[in-house]
Design a protein around this nucleic acid. Structure first.
Length: 260
DNA sequence: ATGGTCGAGTATCGA
């Protein structure tokens, strides 16, 4: 089972690139973030002709998350599961795809350490853990995929010195991510490439992509039972090249869920 | 050393 995640930075602007990528990467499940679409504007038909069912949780203009699947989509939950404090933004969507509880998440950016938005980010990560507790458990098949806006370790940023005092690398953010890991989730891509400086996001400015000034902030977190069947994975840097790319590349992992 | 770019919407803000 190939599970992928991609922050597309506007699905309206990115639809041709997503269609192209689905055509050759053929993920079983693709989680999208930053669709920047209303639910009414979501292009379900474009994906159904490629063999994918799709669900979307969006508000237009900002945020917006989706799940595409060619192995079924059931039990769809938009936002946090009740009774978790609701999120005013469209940042999480959860569904059951072929026995796997899949969440597509767009974690708040945080903006700066002294910002209210940073406190919102920390609170949001705590609520995500509560959400998972309600909908599933660490002994189930769970994949939480998305733009976490957190570099898990210093190896995940091009120059740790350049990020001192910034969001994405603070101890509090990494602790909040660690809380998800202690719930029972593992960073699947890092398991495959324990020591490699591989990134998933590069700023559009200043030629950052070609200069390898990136960050690995797009993660696929998997529960133990999925991690046991982890086979392979990639960041598809080709999708960050060429005409009208997102500033993020898609990340995917191949897993063979263990039978119970 | 500094500023660089996109996408939203159509002036700026968010990333």
């Amino acid at each position: 089972m190939r599970i992928a995640t991609w922050n597309v930075n506007s699905l309206k602007a990115r639809l041709p690139r997503v269609e192209e990528w689905l055509g050759y990467a053929r993920p079983d499940v693709l989680c999208l973030q930053e669709t920047k679409l209303s639910d009414a504007a979501f292009p379900h038909m474009a994906f159904s002709v490629l063999g994918y069912e799709s669900v979307h949780h969006g508000e237009g203009q900002w945020n917006g998350v989706a799940i595409l699947s060619r192995v079924g989509i059931d039990n769809v939950v938009e936002g946090f599961a009740k009774p978790v404090d609701p999120d005013p933004d469209s940042r999480v969507l959860t569904a059951l795809c072929s026995g796997v509880v899949v969440s597509s998440v767009y974690v708040p950016n945080g903006r700066s350490l002294d910002s209210d938005h940073y406190q919102y980010k920390l609170s949001w990560l705590g609520r995500l853990r509560d959400h998972l507790d309600i909908l599933s458990g660490p002994d189930e098949l769970v994949a939480v995929c998305g733009d976490f806006n957190i570099a898990p370790a210093d190896i995940d940023v091009w120059d740790p010195k350049a990020f001192v005092g910034s969001t994405h690398v603070s101890a509090e953010e990494r602790t909040a991510l660690g809380s998800l890991e202690s719930w029972g989730l593992a960073d699947a891509f890092r398991m495959l490439y324990p020591g490699d400086r591989l990134y998933s996001y590069w700023d559009y400015r200043a030629g950052d992509f070609h200069e390898h000034r990136g960050m690995r902030i797009d993660l696929v977190l998997v529960s133990r039972r999925l991690a046991q069947g982890l086979k392979w994975g990639l960041v598809d840097r080709n999708a960050r090249k060429g005409k009208l790319p997102s500033d993020h590349a898609p990340v995917f992992v191949d897993v063979e869920p263990a039978r119970t």
